[in-house]
């Protein structure tokens, strides 16, 4: 039987030291060992992006990485995005733009979007769509996700009225 390995990983600001089987995937380590169930598994072929987390600040698919490969690295999951009780601007924007329905793709979508905005602070709509090509959503048809990411790039500030600003904008623009 394969011998286990000892790893030290910083996840969402906390340090963890664990013995893991080499075949344990990072996403399984996060979900099953650390209880970080905010990160989800949607496929087995590196297509859907539901498991996207940040490794040292850049987006990776945690289903396509072994936990041992994260040894000595810093991982950020959706659970580490809000700071001091304040939502990350992308979390707020996804809410404000109705960019989620069932919410299953959402953690990965937000993590991929955050990485995208780190690499390109002012993306066009096309660049946002291409930047999210590694994340599948079956509910939203993507339009509101794109709008949410764009709104963060544009520095839109939302009110806390609980009503969508600019609502009744039933007709979009082409």
């Amino acid at each position: 039987m394969a011998s286990s390995k000892n790893i030290t990983v910083e996840v969402d600001g906390a340090n963890y030291n664990d013995d893991v089987e080499p075949r344990l995937l990072l996403v399984q380590y996060l979900r099953e060992r650390l209880g970080k169930t905010g990160t989800l598994i949607g496929c087995d072929t590196t297509n859907c992006g539901a498991c996207t987390v940040h490794l040292d600040g850049v987006s990776v698919k945690s289903c396509t990485m072994l936990a041992v490969q994260a040894d000595g690295h810093k991982v950020t999951t959706i659970e580490g995005m809000a700071q001091d009780g304040k939502l990350h601007p992308l979390q707020e924007a996804f809410h404000q733009c109705h960019a989620l329905q069932c919410g299953f793709c959402t953690p990965g979508m937000i993590m991929a979007s955050a990485s995208l905005l780190t690499e390109n602070q002012h993306p066009t709509e096309k660049e946002i769509r291409e930047g999210l090509e590694g994340n599948l959503c079956r509910c939203t048809g993507y339009q509101n996700i794109v709008a949410a990411v764009k709104s963060v790039a544009d520095g839109v500030e939302y009110d806390d009225s609980g009503v969508q600003s600019g609502a009744d904008k039933t007709a979009g623009v082409s």
């Binding site: 490794l55 990485s115 590694g134």
Partner: peptide, 9 residues
Amino acid sequence: VADPQVRHR
């Protein structure tokens, strides 16, 4: 190549 996450790794 593939998508941004895959290109990172």
